[in-house]
Design a binder for these strands. Structure first.
Lengths: 225, 225
DNA sequence: CTATAATGTGACCTGCTGGTCATATGACCA
DNA sequence: TGGTCATATGACCAGCAGGTCACATTATAG
């Protein structure tokens, strides 16, 4: 947490610092953010910085707190929509309200989510062609599936590609993170339990994709009153 | 691409370098990997390193190539399973075979996927408690949904949490990446087109989750012959 | 006006980075 | 043997990092 000195500062100065930090983290992530640049861009001295914060991570923690506070306020204001939503309608509402929030603080959101969910996405342009190749493969697969009548023809192909990519990435992240904790990763991956878990994951995706479009339409009718 | 000198090297030496690089990238990612450490751990001189590679990224590109070559060979060997799979069975087969591959080269996979899919996941322990809090919220939501009979009671709650987290992360990444390209992000987010896209995404998830378990069982019977 | 406490400052420190280059080594050939 | 060429080496460079500290400035209180 920032030191008390920071909170005694006039609001204007604090904002200037926070803004500089947001810009820095949004552009460089956590590890490669430079305190020197933050200091320069916020117009304070190096020494002052260390009178306000413990270190880089401390600033970032403050940003997290700021975003959290914004979130609480944002959601509090909007909460009273229809009372008897079912869980999925509620989840949908949360996601959409979250989107509104993100949109109104794009840089802050970028800074936080870049650090929390991964840096790779952001300098992905270097490897864009490699990604593109796998996307192409998936796209072909889905188009074939539509031809075969396995997927609703009106399904959005780009969307399906994104879904499948998201799933494979999520699964491989899961395998690496969980598997690394095991003493015998090979055995763990091949175990019935792990395989079943993956199967279930994939069936959720499959079952969603096979039928989405028609379901979507009927749901849309149900929702839009 | 590595310079010709590198490929003239005795295989043993090349392997030592590649191994050191893999370990380095797996632990530090791309940006924070240190050529000095790679050099030290592979027992070559700094100057030699630059006689083999252009720079850090060049080494990493070589790793990508290595993994790709492994992948091609791995899939080639295994390909002939049942011929008349439908697309989803095929996708399932790809994912599982990929898992086997990842498992047999865990460090290499970690190095590559860490750089390609994000660094954040890997030093996530720092922010573990923050993540944990949102997980708890989702978990409560799902448990409530089960009580209400909106989700099959036999559904794996951990799994459902993971699915929902994956979705929200994917959506917010999508919003940030795409939205940043727009001149008016607010307008873009609120446009009917964007909203519909998000709706569809969420319906895929919802429809999958509502019914998975029963579908999973009948599919499992269909598959296991 | 003085004494004390809080805040502000930037030159300076050490350590590491990616990258260079003059020089040394040793294999191969005439 | 002497000459040539690919390879190997590590001291060295400039640049930037995070972090410190003695001192300057300002605000507060008596």
């Amino acid at each position: 947490m920032p030191k008390p000195t920071f909170f005694n500062l006039p609001e204007e100065k604090r904002e200037k610092i926070v803004n500089a930090a947001v810009e820095e983290f949004a552009e460089y992530g956590l590890e490669n953010a430079s305190t020197n640049r933050i200091v320069k861009n916020s117009g304070i001295a190096k020494g002052s910085f260390y009178q306000y914060f413990e270190d880089k991570q401390d600033v970032f923690m403050h940003l997290l707190k700021v975003l959290e506070r914004e979130k609480v306020e944002f959601f509090k204001d909007k909460h009273p929509s229809s009372t008897n939503m079912d869980t999925f309608q509620y989840f949908r509402w949360i996601i959409k309200t979250g989107m509104e929030l993100n949109t109104s603080h794009p840089l802050l959101t970028q800074a936080v989510s870049r650090v929390m969910f991964g840096e790779g996405m952001y300098y992905g342009h270097t490897f864009a062609d490699i990604r593109e190749r796998t996307s192409q493969g998936l796209r072909a697969m889905i188009e074939q599936a539509i031809e075969r009548g396995e997927v609703d023809p009106s399904v959005d192909v780009d969307l399906a590609v994104m879904i499948m990519e998201t799933w494979s990435n999520a699964i491989s992240t899961y395998i690496i993170n969980e598997g690394m904790k095991q003493k015998d990763i090979m055995k763990w991956v091949r175990s019935a339990k792990t395989q079943e878990k993956i199967d279930k994951l994939l069936y959720v995706m499959e079952y969603g994709l096979r039928k989405t479009e028609s379901q979507f339409i009927s749901n849309a009718e149900r929702t839009s009153t």
